[in-house]
Design a binder for these strands. Structure first.
Lengths: 233, 233
DNA sequence: TTCATAGTTCGATCATAGCCGAAGCATCAG
DNA sequence: CTGATGCTTCGGCTATGATCGAACTATGAA
């Protein structure tokens, strides 16, 4: 009966509003300085510094010193995943406010989850890729030959990705939609290429905005029904 | 920048050792009384009652009154899933003690996750079912015709399952293995049938113990390589 | 060098919340 | 009814920890 404290220690870290703000601010995968995080959390620099020390000690964050700045980022995608799961739970159990503002809708449509595309668009991408037979598999997904050709044509260096420790394909449960989207190295590379192409750009916070050409290119590339809704194959 | 508090409120609930003990005690899906939970958490009855009131108010638990007892259970499988995810994170970040006792190994091998089979055996089951073509799909898995016949033959009333609100097949990420196992209504029904057949029985806590015949039947039914390891198809 | 910015550490304050003893309801057995 | 058990509520104690002011260190700029 001693399993509780194990999860309690990490959950308690997420349970402080200031720390939770810090972590959600980092959920887009960027690295931020102590001052930026202090601002995001709404506390003073000293307080933030203390929180960051704790999160770092617990290995939820990794620190990187550059000149007189110290940059923090999430220590891995799994941290972001747990945060998303908690958001989903908070929503289901009604802890979230009803405030469904415009920013909320934008977040649902497309956002960054650590370093890859999430929200309606992210779910659509994975579905499209699977329908086209680019990716196969349930949870530990795998690239098909067709998929390798496709993503290489998209400008992604698969050999490079496969050298890293990070899984290339990874299903990541979306808190707003109730389906998976594509994470892993490939998910990250895809978002990166899409931003290079000017299909999508970052807005405030984690929101992603698709350009007109971006929407067209995206739907054409992944063979999605126009916009959203309509009938699928 | 006001997303933090949303997750903080629920995370804080999981962040207290007593409450975390209560929740992990409920992770096997059973309903327990206030006294039993107080004992599991190592606190007095009054204290536990207070904690339970909070967890209930947050909709993480559901209460059910029966005579002069009050039974609590997790409000849904998603709660158990978040707890498992937190355990996984705690393990990866080193918050867990090195103590890899015998119970720990047993837990890894086979355990109850809410109401279905988890651990090595749970992951093996899903893999076997997929290799045989009983189940198809990535995250929102679907039964094949072959699968319907198989599970019906196993003594499961699929029509009944499909009437419920609960998804029949659901991938559930395993914290010890790093793969999915089968949750949902079908996962629950399967474990139930396996216990009926005497293949497996509950040990202390969440540990499940396979009998000799159980191991044989299990491996035969799902066409698994003997024991563990060996070469797969 | 001097000054400014970024960050850490220390110390004191203060609020929150966990905890238990005691008393109060509610349900059941006799 | 009386008594016993299961649980909740109340009140007070206590400890933890979040917060910020102030002082200190470190890096960079002039």
């Amino acid at each position: 009966m001693k399993e509780g404290p194990v999860i309690a220690s990490v959950a308690a870290l997420l349970g402080d509003p200031a720390r939770a703000n810090i972590l959600t601010a980092l959920m887009d995968g960027r690295a931020l300085t102590v001052s930026e995080l202090a601002e995001a959390a709404g506390v003073t620099l000293q307080t933030a510094s203390g929180h960051l020390a704790k999160l770092d000690a617990a290995n939820l964050l990794t620190a990187e010193k550059q000149g007189r700045h110290r940059y923090f980022r999430l220590s891995g995608p799994d941290v972001a995943q747990v945060l998303e799961a908690l958001m989903g739970l908070a929503q289901r159990t009604g802890a979230t406010r009803v405030r469904t503002g415009p920013k909320d809708a934008a977040l649902r449509s497309a956002r960054i989850c650590y370093d890859h595309l999430a929200g309606e668009r992210g779910v659509a991408l994975l579905k499209g890729a699977q329908r086209q037979g680019l990716i196969k598999g349930e949870k530990d997904m795998i690239l098909t030959e067709k998929g390798r050709a496709f993503f290489a044509g998209f400008g992604i260096d698969l050999a490079q990705l496969e050298k890293g420790r990070r899984p290339v394909c990874r299903a990541c449960l979306d808190w707003s939609e109730r389906h998976s989207h594509l994470g892993g190295g490939l998910g990250a590379a895809l978002l990166s290429r899409m931003m290079d192409r000017g299909w999508v750009r970052r807005e405030a916070g984690r929101v992603l905005a698709f350009t007109c050409e971006g929407t067209e290119g995206f739907e054409a590339a992944f063979m999605l029904p126009a916009v959203k809704g309509s009938q699928a194959a």
